[in-house]
């Protein structure tokens, strides 16, 4: 049971308008207070690692474009961390690491057999320099 603030008539709890005077019930619970945008304080713990140097190594030295997404994820870490979204920061950090590792493994899988093959050719050619040039 609630009471109309205009005429004082008692009304059912779920009534929106007063049954007697027709005014809108002012006794409705006030609208939820406007949420003040609180800028979350950056967490006090250490920021998750960005793995930046590792991703530069795989991009420039490993020669595979898989290093590029690693750099993109590395760039997200600080932004999420400063917004207080520690989980997202850890997720980006983890993705950056995974792409770096994936890039490194792909590079090794591709290049080690290739290197062995080349050493074999060089050995077969008796180490002479008359070996077809590769770019």
């Amino acid at each position: 049971m609630k009471y109309c603030s205009t005429c004082g008539e008692s009304n059912p709890d779920n009534a929106r308008f007063c049954t007697k005077c027709g005014y809108e019930m002012a006794s409705e619970p006030a609208a939820a207070p406007i949420p003040t945008p609180v800028k979350p304080a950056p967490p006090s713990g250490p920021m998750p690692p960005t793995y930046l140097w590792q991703s530069i190594v795989v991009t420039i030295i490993c020669c595979l474009p898989l290093g590029i997404p690693a750099i993109v994820y590395a760039a997200q870490v600080e932004k999420y961390f400063m917004n207080g979204d520690i989980n997202a920061a850890h997720r980006s950090s983890r993705y950056a690491k995974n792409f770096t590792v994936a890039s490194l493994i792909t590079g090794l899988v591709v290049y080690i057999p290739y290197l062995i093959y080349l050493i074999f050719i060089v050995a077969a050619a008796g180490g002479s320099s008359m070996i077809p040039l590769f770019e």
Partner: peptide, 24 residues
């Protein structure tokens, strides 16, 4: 590497485009 057959960039071999690491 110019004289000896070091492994070439796979990206360059596959696409014909140089990657940021070509020439390293």
């Amino acid at each position: 590497p110019v004289e000896r057959p070091f492994p070439p960039c796979i990206f360059y071999k596959l696409t014909g485009f140089q990657c940021p690491g070509c020439g390293t």
